[in-house]
């Protein structure tokens, strides 16, 4: 009986820990120069969470070559169109990774690329929509070998 109780407590603890980890990526303090780079590219519009997915490996063996896919939930027609996606690294020597401009001929608001990460850090993706709204996603990536020296 007590064994079951402990198991359950462990399971709940593990679940809480996972939730905390996910939250941590979104709420981590962002260095000032990263915030400045974001302002410059994205503007002052308040970003909402949701409607955007940032897919990166939890652990990147080689920081010189980290696969990234950003998917924005958008019909890519009329007002529901994503016009730009911006990627920022919070702990690289330069915060801006890349910006993508999406034309009206795209079928989906989805971009895959390969990026460099100097060390383990939080990666941020921003999407600008045709109606002026901005969406944001964050993901934590652990890096085994830094990508700046190779």
């Amino acid at each position: 009986m007590s064994a079951i109780l402990i198991d359950r407590r462990l399971a709940i603890g593990g679940l809480l820990w996972l939730v905390a980890l996910k939250g941590a990526a979104a709420n981590e303090a962002i260095p000032a120069e990263v915030t400045a780079a974001i302002r410059e590219k994205v503007g002052a519009a308040e970003a909402s969470e949701g409607g955007i997915t940032l897919k990166v490996p939890e652990t990147a063996e080689n920081g010189a070559f980290v696969p990234v896919t950003v998917t924005v939930h958008s019909a890519m027609r009329g007002e529901d169109r994503c016009t730009a996606i911006h990627l920022f690294a919070t702990r690289n020597p330069t915060p801006g990774v890349a910006s993508y401009q999406l034309g009206a001929g795209l079928a989906r608001a989805e971009v895959s690329a390969r990026i460099r990460l100097a060390e383990g850090q939080v990666l941020l993706a921003y999407a600008r929509m045709a109606d002026g709204s901005v969406r944001r996603a964050a993901a934590r990536v652990a890096v085994s070998t830094g990508g700046c020296l190779t």
Binding site: G96, V97, S99, Q101, G103, R116
Partner: peptide
């Protein structure tokens, strides 16, 4: 279109 900065592989 894409603008690359230092972080592109």
């Amino acid at each position: 279109a894409a603008d690359f900065r230092n972080g592109t592989s």
